[in-house]
Amino acid sequence: MKPVIYIISTPLSLRDYRRYGIEELQNKNVDVDIVDISSLIYPDKYKGNNVRSCDFCNVSYVSKVQDLDLFINQRRVDHVYITIGFLPKRILFKLMKKGSKVAVQMWGPIPLAHVGTHRFISRIKKPIVITKKIMTKLYEQVKYGNIEYDYYLSVDEVKNKQNILCHSYDYYLHLLDANNVKNQSNSNSSVVFLDQMLPYHPDFSLSGIKNTINSRSYYQKLNDYFSFVENKLKVRVVIAAHPRSIGVENYSELFQGRDVIIGMTNQLISEALFTITHYSTAINYSVINNKKIVYLLSSELISIGMKNQLELMAFETDSEIVNIDITDGFYQGNNNNNNNKYKEYKKKYITQRCDDITNGQIIINELLVNN
């Protein structure tokens, strides 16, 4: 069996360690190395101590091009590289130069609404940085041409590519946790909010987009709505906290004493009456567990240009939208989820496979053994 080297461009969390398939491969005695190049890709954000060390597995950290070259030259040609998402072409070229095979593990597809050009431009926080990134990509296109990955690990087939169909990360984790998660279809003890930590989400700064959400106003509206639901339906609202919220000081206090739980989203949804969200991709768990979804709109969501995205996701799942700026628009719990819509959504965005083979085993069978 061929050894594997994972190339990651953001610091590895325990959640990533599981959902990327690294833990499963190591448990099945696959020789796996992990290389963190986040300091090389995002030097302004990840410098020295800003890249947290990993305390649950061995990770090699590379911050200079010369160090990456040295690492590659010390590895055998038969290693298979798996990159998490697409890397700059200059990095991909280095990985392929020695003759090793390279696969890209793609994020699962999501419904993606069009954002108007004028709105996008108005949200740009650092136009010089954005321009520099565009120029870098153009330069790499000229220098390296149409260099391509050897394999695409994806939920849906990429046209004219060598595809290996995998499950979405959420469905993969659902399979891994199948013995611990039981769908409580008749449960009515809780409603789950799929938190996105919108006022603090790091992707805004990474992408150079200005975050205009007022934290105080945003959380006050959320808590008012949660209180309404709790009083009206005689249930408790539980917060399925965003995984990265662990880095925000006193984050749980923002939800006025409600249970704030990290790392148990699938379990929480399986036991819930329904789920509440803005446009979180964790609705995959709602679809998998056949739970109703209510989408929350507010002026804060409109201010960051996500109204179209929210409306598209509601359409794709045939679900209700509630504007929490309007007090008489609160959800009454009357809509029924459309099973046909959920089946379509699952096939488009969660998995197209007809089996429940785990992603780690798929990688072994179709990438490490048969290629």
Results as ranks from 00 to 15, higher is better:
Val4Gln: 05
Ile7Pro: 04
Thr10Ile: 07
Leu12Ser: 03
Leu12Val: 09
Arg15Cys: 07
Arg18Ile: 14
Tyr20Val: 00
Asp31Ile: 00
Ile34Trp: 02
Ile41Ala: 04
Ile72Pro: 07
Ile84Pro: 00
Gly85Leu: 08
Phe86Pro: 06
Pro88Leu: 00
Pro111Gln: 08
Pro127Gln: 12
Ile128Val: 15
Ile128Trp: 08
Val129Ala: 15
Lys132Asp: 14
Lys133Cys: 02
Thr136Ile: 14
Lys137Phe: 09
Leu138Asn: 10
Tyr139Cys: 11
Tyr139Lys: 15
Tyr139Ile: 12
Tyr139Thr: 11
Gln141Ala: 12
Val142Phe: 14
Tyr152Gln: 14
Leu153Tyr: 05
Asp156Phe: 07
Val158Asn: 03
Ile164Cys: 07
Cys166Pro: 03
His167Gln: 05
Tyr169Thr: 01
Tyr171Gly: 01
Ala178Asn: 07
Asn180Pro: 00
Val181Tyr: 04
Asn183His: 08
Asn188Met: 11
Val191Ala: 05
Val192Ala: 08
Met197Arg: 06
Phe204Leu: 07
Leu206Gln: 14
Ser207Val: 00
Ile209Ser: 12
Lys210Arg: 11
Tyr218Ala: 06
Tyr218Val: 11
Lys221Thr: 03
Leu222Asn: 03
Tyr225Met: 05
Phe226Gly: 01
Val229Leu: 15
Glu230Thr: 09
Glu230Gly: 10
Lys234Arg: 13
Val235Lys: 09
Ile239Cys: 09
Arg244Gln: 13
Ile246Arg: 15
Gly247Trp: 03
Glu249Val: 12
Tyr251Gln: 04
Leu254Glu: 03
Gln267Ala: 10
Gln267Asp: 11
Ile269Ala: 03
Ser270Glu: 01
Ser270Phe: 01
Glu271Trp: 01
Phe274Val: 08
Phe274Asn: 04
Thr275Asp: 04
Ser299Arg: 05
Met306Asp: 02
Leu310Gly: 00
Leu312Phe: 05
Glu316Arg: 15
Asp318Pro: 00
Ser319Trp: 01
Asp325Ser: 05
Thr327Ala: 10
Gly329Ala: 04
Phe330Met: 08
Asn334Phe: 06
Asn334Ser: 12
Asn340Met: 13
Asn340Gln: 15
Lys348Ser: 11
Asp356Trp: 01
Thr358Glu: 09
Thr358Phe: 02
Asn359Phe: 07
Ile363Ser: 10
Asn365Ala: 09
Leu368His: 08
